[in-house]
């Protein structure tokens, strides 16, 4: 029972892929796409590409705020 998946085609995967990669699909829909990706090389490659691009995008810009801003905010809140 637990291993049954609704067969979905590449078009359906393409429509939901971004929500899938963002973790925004429910369990059943996620499992359907997981299953499809195990058997479709093109969709798997597409998903990996999008995932990798998102990971690279997460590294944009500074990871930390400037130390001076942190000091400024601490002083600001002290004055409240």
């Amino acid at each position: 029972m637990g291993n049954e998946h609704k067969p979905i085609d590449c078009e359906e995967v393409l429509r939901s892929l971004i929500s899938y990669l963002d973790g925004e699909l429910d369990k059943a829909a996620t499992a359907d796409i997981d299953h499809h990706l195990k058997h479709c090389r093109t969709c798997y490659s597409r998903a990996e590409f999008e995932r990798h691009l998102t990971e690279l995008s997460r590294k944009i810009g500074p990871s930390k705020a400037p130390a001076e801003l942190r000091r400024r905010l601490a002083r600001l809140v002290e004055g409240f």
Binding site: P62, L73, V77
Partner: peptide, 26 residues
């Protein structure tokens, strides 16, 4: 105030990153 300050300082990096991408100027 101390609780507010601690929370703000915890989130300062995220607030700055979002602000920087919105304004595009440091």
């Amino acid at each position: 105030r101390r609780l507010f300050q601690a929370r703000v300082l915890d989130l300062t990096d995220g607030l700055y990153r979002v602000a920087l991408r919105l304004t595009r100027h440091e």
